[in-house]
Design a protein around this nucleic acid. Structure first.
Lengths: 205, 205
DNA sequence: CAATGTATACCGGGTAGTGAATATACACAA
DNA sequence: TTGTGTATATTCACTACCCGGTATACATTG
């Protein structure tokens, strides 16, 4: 029974993903993951050296699809760069309305592993967040933000991760609309500075 | 030996505070707290009904001093409202340079207790964050932000909690300077809108 | 056979919480 | 003053369970 519809390793990652997302890393035991994956714990330990290893692999697997989703949300939004960036926040607000929404797994991991500074999962999490920030930076650069592109990308990241944190606490997705508004203001202001003569009224689209 | 220099309950809260802050709520056992406080675990359970109870009491005790610190940082910063609000972020960046800095205990708690939606500590955490937001709102209102006061307060909160999250992950306090810059831009823009016709007296209400 | 993958059964250690007894302090009666 | 009752405060020893990880053996397949 080596391969029932999916490679064992993938099944483990999928089970771990669901449970980690639902209850958190520390609250979920290896036994629970193995049971959810339909295997024994020993088999899990054949595919992953340790629980810590599994956590890191889990985040690694989530990184690319996560960034791809943000890119899709950005591209599918009509309007200028500011509106497109704000679109990410509006889509996020939509997601956050679901009761199953549990914030950002990368940020949550950095909290849960705060007493293990060298944990491999933290390296993965940092790399992912940097990748998102760099993508935003390149987007703003292409839009003509010049030297403002990088600080702008960081401010959007602050609002993004702030949204995750605040909405996770208050369970009120409207904060993400408020964040979208800030994003538009910050981008519009700098882009109009950069363009100097192109006429654009901040806040409208 | 009932009272050696401090009421037992306070000693427990202090010990719990240090350990929770350092390693997180789930990573610290009740035994560890009792040992740090110099008492038996059974004594701890005399003063607190459960670990969950202790967690809530811990956050409750931290709320007021935390808000007071923000207020002090705000008041001690020179300049207009925007500069004063940004001052909080600059002081925060200063704190975050310490290796002992571990982000915001209220946000961290909301992550660690994500699988226990009704946990009493979450109620305390939400109330605290709301109190900070309301204080910011009143400050902006006094500065003449009018209807913009509340959304502005929320955006500052998003940047504040975003700073906590991002800096905890990347361990780079310069993000807080970037957040301070965003705060100034967002406040300045709306305050100049509000003043449009009134004579420019920045701090009066 | 040899390599890969899976299962059963187990270990040592840690966890939140408790039962029962004890020590201290103070109020009040003899 | 001395004795006694009672509420507060504290200790030691313990339970019942959960957790990450492993020793060993068995199965499947090239």
């Amino acid at each position: 029974m080596r391969d029932s519809s999916q490679p064992t390793r993938e099944r483990i990652l999928q089970a771990a993903g669901k449970l980690f997302h639902r209850d958190g890393i520390r609250a979920i035991s290896v036994d629970a993951i193995a049971e959810k994956a339909g295997i024994t714990k020993r088999t899990l330990y054949y595919h992953f050296r340790s629980k810590d290893d599994l956590i890191a692999a889990h985040l690694q697997a989530r990184g690319e699809p996560n960034l791809a989703l943000f890119k899709r949300w950005f591209e599918e939004t009509e309007g200028d760069v500011a509106e497109k960036a704000a679109g990410i926040f509006r889509q996020l607000a939509q997601s956050a309305r679901s009761a199953k929404w549990k914030g950002c797994g990368f940020l949550r991991t950095s909290v849960e592993l705060i007493n293990l500074p060298g944990h491999p999962a933290l390296v993965v999490a940092r790399a992912h967040k940097k990748r998102v920030e760099d993508w935003l930076g390149s987007v703003f650069m292409e839009a003509g933000a010049g030297n403002d592109a990088q600080p702008l990308a960081r401010q959007v990241m602050l609002l993004l991760d702030g949204s995750f944190a605040v909405v996770l606490l208050h369970r009120d997705p409207s904060y993400m609309e408020t964040a979208a508004d800030a994003v538009i203001r910050l981008i519009a202001e700098r882009l109009s500075d950069a363009r100097a003569n192109a006429s654009r009224i901040p806040g409208a689209a």
